[in-house]
Simulated scan of single mutants.
Amino acid sequence: MTDADPLEEIEFLARSANRIEVLAALVEEPQTRQSLADSVGVSQPTLGRILRDLTKRKWVRADGDQYRVTATGELVATGITDLRERLATETKLRDVIEWIPTDTVDVGLHHFADARITTPSQTRPNAPIKRMLELLSETDHALLLSHAFNEQKLQLIRDRSVEGKLTTRGVFAEDAIEAIEATADLRELLADIVASEAAEIRVVSTDIPVAIEVTDSRTHLLLRNDEGIVRASLDTDDETVRAWAERLHEKYWSIGTPLSVDDIGD
């Protein structure tokens, strides 16, 4: 009976990405040595050593001129591939995770594996905001939820709503609307949005923990620190993230108070 140390087996695989690639390739389909060497990109001597090691562990077996993964080999391959993908996601999110309200974003972080991350830089300090505006400028429909209302976003929604190019259902914090009402030109933009047939705005007095927008193709999260400063944004086409965002929007939409032109102060 084999009494291998699982950590040693993990180390065995981690020391060589080629071992993982060979296992993953054989999970897809049986292959000859030549096809394996071509698909993984290793020399025949290197492949020979890998196959001997994997065969010794009974993860791979020879079948005529082909090699096949065994049931235990598939178990290992699936697990190590999943671990590698999770670590790749963790590495990607590491610098922004502190600003993701994980108690609110109740979907597995692996759903952000393919997310586009946008962060400010010295040359593009407003990059996350610009990404948000880019997505809004490309969509026909949008669900919006936020505790703030950026001036550029306000102008864009106003222009596209009045032109009939954007249908919007937005929920905003009471403080955000009051801040807009305090400035005449912003107040006018908001009034135009509310007056248009393409937009519906509701207001909530409760805290909104994360700013989201759901467009035709992407779900966008604007990430802020405790001081309210935008530190990054995430956007993804993942359907699970989209479903979560739609549920969160509906939660606040259901308790929001519709905003009319008459409600906007002079």
Rank of each mutant, 00 (worst) to 15 (best):
P6E: 06
L83M: 11
D175K: 13
R160E: 11
S254F: 00
R187Y: 09
E181S: 08
L234R: 11
R247D: 15
R68Q: 05
L13Y: 08
L136A: 04
D65R: 11
D185Y: 10
F112S: 03
D175T: 14
L135E: 13
T46D: 02
Q34K: 09
T72K: 07
K130S: 11
V162P: 11
A191I: 05
K58D: 07
I180H: 12
D266L: 12
T89R: 14
I97W: 10
A24T: 13
L223E: 12
R68M: 02
A88G: 12
T139W: 04
A191F: 06
R86Y: 11
G64F: 02
D226L: 06
E21S: 13
R61G: 00
A199G: 01
L144S: 01
I208K: 00
T32R: 03
T236N: 06
V230A: 10
T168N: 04
S260M: 01
I97C: 05
V107L: 03
R169T: 09
V261R: 12
Q122E: 13
V69S: 03
A77Y: 08
D82R: 14
T55A: 08
R84W: 06
S217F: 06
R247F: 01
L23V: 05
H111Q: 11
E163H: 09
D65T: 12
A14S: 12
A71C: 02
I20K: 12
T118A: 13
L87H: 13
L136K: 04
V210T: 03
T139P: 03
R158G: 01
T46V: 07
T118P: 00
I255C: 00
S146D: 06
G164M: 10
E8I: 04
T206V: 07
V60I: 02
G170I: 03
T206N: 01
L143T: 09
Y67V: 03
R124M: 09
Q152P: 00
S35G: 01
A77V: 07
R160W: 05
R131I: 02
E250F: 08
K56I: 00
T240A: 02
K130D: 15
T168Q: 04
D175S: 15
A88V: 11
E29H: 09
T183I: 15
E151N: 08
L51W: 02
E246G: 02
L13C: 08
I50M: 03
W253Y: 09
V27Y: 06
P120H: 14
D103L: 14
V69R: 00
T219D: 09
V171P: 06
D216L: 04
E163P: 08
